[in-house]
Design a binder for these strands. Structure first.
Lengths: 167, 167
DNA sequence: CCCTTACTTCAAATATTATTGAAATGAGTT
DNA sequence: AACTCATTTCAATAATATTTGAAGTAAGGG
């Protein structure tokens, strides 16, 4: 029976170019407020010519089992990686989603939409509460109204953004 | 001579509505990867019917002198607050920028543009380096090209976004 | 000039977040 | 069912980021 060892590019050390791309991805992740390691994992998958398993990721990035697992979990939630099954192999292999429009659309949906939704609820409640609160100052009323308009604008922006990137 | 005490709304305790708005702003700040206290300071200025000075901010938000100073510094960098001088008063007073289009435009310019710029430099260097590197795999070449296209798209998106919010 | 007040800076303390590794879980295989 | 290997989870640890308060700087007023 064949051994468990991996052959091919997955075992060769990372070249300068690969490292630079991984570092760029890590930076991009931090720019979006995500953990650096997320970006690194994504970057490694991005430069790899073939899908990698968790073990590859741990070894080549020098991160722990737990980090690799949790990082991949997050990336799956964002749909930034896909799980692929290699015939005759028990492990899961991962490959990156490389379409910017997909990545951006998913990120907006998963990361921003939920927060906007809870924001909406809180604003609604506030508005309702203020309805029969004549003692509240005009100024405050106006600011709440303005906030609601902010929220509406922001809410419209997300789907618009998705559309734009697709065009 | 008049005492240094502040009169009017700046000395009354924060009401429920004010607190809720401040909390919403804190959440929004965190959504954008900014410190919570930044959002709170902005929120306090947002609900205040008149400009506030650092001392007001410290006392009403229960934060230290240093935090107030640094928070305001950041907010000034983002152009999210303006300094106003009150005649006959030595202190600086602050009022919020409440136009979403301004806020968003400034944030994009101050927060994202610089990072995109350094990203561009690194990508250019990478591309140049790969030019006379025939030993680099086709796959890697393609990925670098794709990254450059990502970057171009992202770069075009920022000014587009500013335009959109204004419309 | 010196004093006072307003603000800034920065090193230390605190709080928050990410990472680790070991134990629990799940999923095939014999 | 018991065994093995792959993955997940989670409490402890490590790393980061934020907050504080005291010392330093600046600037107006006497």
């Amino acid at each position: 029976m064949e051994t468990n060892m991996h052959t091919g590019p997955a075992t060769t050390a990372l070249g300068e170019t690969e490292q630079e791309i991984i570092s760029l991805m890590a930076g991009a992740a931090q720019m979006l407020g995500l953990p650096k390691s997320l970006g690194e994992i994504y970057g490694l998958l991005y430069v790899s010519p073939e899908p990698l398993c968790m073990d590859d990721i741990m070894k080549r990035l020098h991160i722990s089992l737990g980090s690799a697992s949790q990082g991949l979990k997050q990336l799956r939630i964002f749909h930034a990686v896909r799980t692929v099954t290699v015939p005759g192999q028990r492990r899961d292999y991962y490959e990156p989603e490389t379409e910017l429009r997909q990545l951006l659309g998913n990120a907006l949906r998963e990361q921003f939409q939920p927060r906007l939704d809870t924001g909406r609820e809180r604003l609604e409640r506030l508005r309702h509460y203020l309805k029969d609160s004549p003692e509240t100052s005009d100024h405050l009323h106006q600011r709440v109204e303005k906030l609601c308009r902010w929220h509406d604008n922001a809410s419209q922006l997300l789907p618009l953004l998705s559309t734009l990137v697709k065009a």
